[in-house]
């Protein structure tokens, strides 16, 4: 049976259908979930997509973390289930405390929307299983608040435990240590600012996002046995 990836739709989400499409092309099943529901409906993996949930009012992710479905998302993560936050989804994960640190305004105070080169820095995560460390990928970014920051102790922990999953080759936004994506201590929760689903078809100019989404399906499938 194909692994089912639930994609949570908040008011203001974007690219949720791109994730569903890419997951389907890889042999999985993508299923939209509504943020106002309280159940994940038995999906194997969860994606919090990009966009501007609740208009980014107050701070990106600050309101979305209180959406009814977030309790189930937290339980899914606590049980070791694969959970990926893309862009705004990454911001939601940090606000929810499911990943450490925060995403502040880009160092240049400009919205950035362009392909960006990343380097895969850590394997064995929900989004990098089967991807060689050191692989360079070109994947679009699309954010104003993508400048990752955290306490020095947190950064030391992320480095020490090999939890920095992606780094920018040319840091576009001022992120500490060129961080583009990190994972949880259990390696099942991954947040990243670039959009792998926007690099999932030759027509989009790059298919570099596919190995990452394939990893999500692999870890989701492993979970259901």
């Amino acid at each position: 049976m194909a692994a089912v990836v639930g994609v949570v739709v908040f008011p203001g989400s974007n690219c949720e259908l791109d994730v569903v499409e890419a997951v389907g092309a890889l042999g999985g099943e993508g299923r939209l979930l509504w943020h106002g529901d309280t159940s994940l409906g038995g999906v194997d993996a969860v994606v919090l997509p990009g966009g501007f949930a609740h208009g980014d009012y107050l701070r990106p992710g600050a309101i979305a973390r209180f959406s009814p479905i977030m309790a189930a998302v937290g339980e899914h993560a606590a049980a070791g289930g694969p959970l990926v936050g893309i862009c705004n989804g990454f911001q939601v994960l940090t606000e929810a405390g499911l990943l450490p640190g925060a995403l502040q305004k880009n160092a240049g105070l400009k919205f950035l929307c362009r392909p960006e080169r990343l380097r895969v820095e850590a394997g064995d995560t929900a989004l990098s299983t089967g991807v060689d460390v050191g692989t360079e990928l070109t994947i679009p970014i699309n954010h104003f608040e993508g400048n990752y920051t955290c306490e020095p102790e947190t950064l030391a922990e992320l480095r020490g435990d090999d939890r920095i999953v992606f780094r920018y080759v040319d840091n576009p936004n001022g992120s500490v240590d060129d961080i583009a994506g990190i994972c949880s201590a259990g390696r099942n929760v991954v947040g990243l600012m670039p959009h792998p689903e926007r690099a999932s078809h030759a027509l989009l100019g790059s298919t570099d996002g596919l190995p990452l989404l394939r990893s999500l399906l692999v870890t989701a499938g492993a979970l259901t046995g």
Partner: peptide, 8 residues
């Protein structure tokens, strides 16, 4: 929990 993000 809400009004500020203590990290930043």
């Amino acid at each position: 929990r809400f009004l500020t993000n203590p990290v930043i």
